[in-house]
Nucleic acid binder design. Sequence first.
RNA 1: GGGGAGAUACCAAAGUGGCCAACUGGGGCAGACUGUAAAUCUGCUGGCUUACGCCUUCGUAGGUUCGAAUCCUGCUCUCCCCA
Length: 376
Amino acid sequence: MRFELIARDAESSARCGLVYTDHGVIETPVFMPVGTVGSVKAVYHRDLKEDIKAQIILGNTYHLYLRPGTDIIRKAGGLHRFISWDRPILTDSGGYQVFSLSESRKLSERGCTFRSHIDGSSHLFTPEGVVDIQREIGADIIMALDECPPGDSDFKYARESLQLTKRWLERGIRHFDATDPLYGYSQTFFPIIQGCVYPQLRKEAAEHAVSLDREGYAIGGLSVGEPAEVMYEMLEVIEPVLPVDKPRYLMGVGTPSNILEAIHRGVDMFDCVMPTRNARNGMLFTSQGKINIRNKKWADDFSSIDEDGTSFVDSAYSKAYLRHLFISNEILGAQIASEHNLAFYLNLVKEARRHIKKGDFVSWKESAVKRLENKL
RNA sequence: GGGGAGAUACCAAAGUGGCCAACUGGGGCAGACUGUAAAUCUGCUGGCUUACGCCUUCGUAGGUUCGAAUCCUGCUCUCCCCA
């Protein structure tokens, strides 16, 4: 993997770049749709590529390991071939699942023992093991196993958690560097910077990650309950520590304005379930603001889903019809809403790229955020 | 013509003397969702009221009772069986 910086904003830390992978080039800032189990829920690959224009998608180590399992994926020739997706894939390590499924996990120096949510069976994830699994999955970008502590963790817990994450990181890198890709194309490994809401821990985590000299760096453990302002502050602490010539990935974020604010603070890559999950639950992000399509007020609104929308579904379907589909619990409603929301997100970051290159990113962002905040 | 069963809120359906403004499901209305155990979850859904509370409501008209959606009688309507 190689990163090329092609534009830097004069008034902020925003940048535009190109991430070269063996599955194609990614323009940054980029939003990566989440496809946890090898499926961006309710969206065809064709629409993902041609309409939404997704450049890269996510998979999840925890979920794919449990089902279908690495044997099947290896037999298929890797995840790309298994799911028929020829663009880049990034896999999360399962670190977030360690956090979100915390009721049934046990952390130790060695790794994390957890119980499958599918059949209750017991499994151990180690920093080395999740590298092996991600090698077998064939992800272009592999994530380190980390612990993602809750947003309200106290300093003592956060510090100890970070030390564990750092030790795990070193083990993961050692193992990654000692192993080879299985499918003839290269893979890269991103560390994850933790440290909760404590600036000194964030700085320490960033310095440690940078000292290990990887091709990109991820920021995790944010947007887990802390106020958005705190998240922005953490980004400001980390930004000057990170090398300008490497991509930065803010994991799991976020709302449209979260993303613009993070781009402002030098972040290049994003993923979030929000556009797809909220779509399935009837919430649409539109240029007119956030709408709940199930609300009665749309019952006889025959205007298109989003007048300024860029997606096929925006021009093809009306709000009244989409509402009808949701009220009738028709699957097509979830499909249309998901396609719309992803297209909205992808177009938002595309606009951000355009304004960074044009040189008016900050003023554009400020009015965009104001519009989004007022309406969302 | 004879026999039987039943009528409860928008719909279905529980309740069969006081703990009933009435279980539950659907529908309706609104909200939440941030590295996906989510096509999920939460609240409200007779009227007035911030609330306490008050008022009206279980086909209809009476009656019994301190008290009735619940017991009795008449009426109206619905369904089933036999002729």
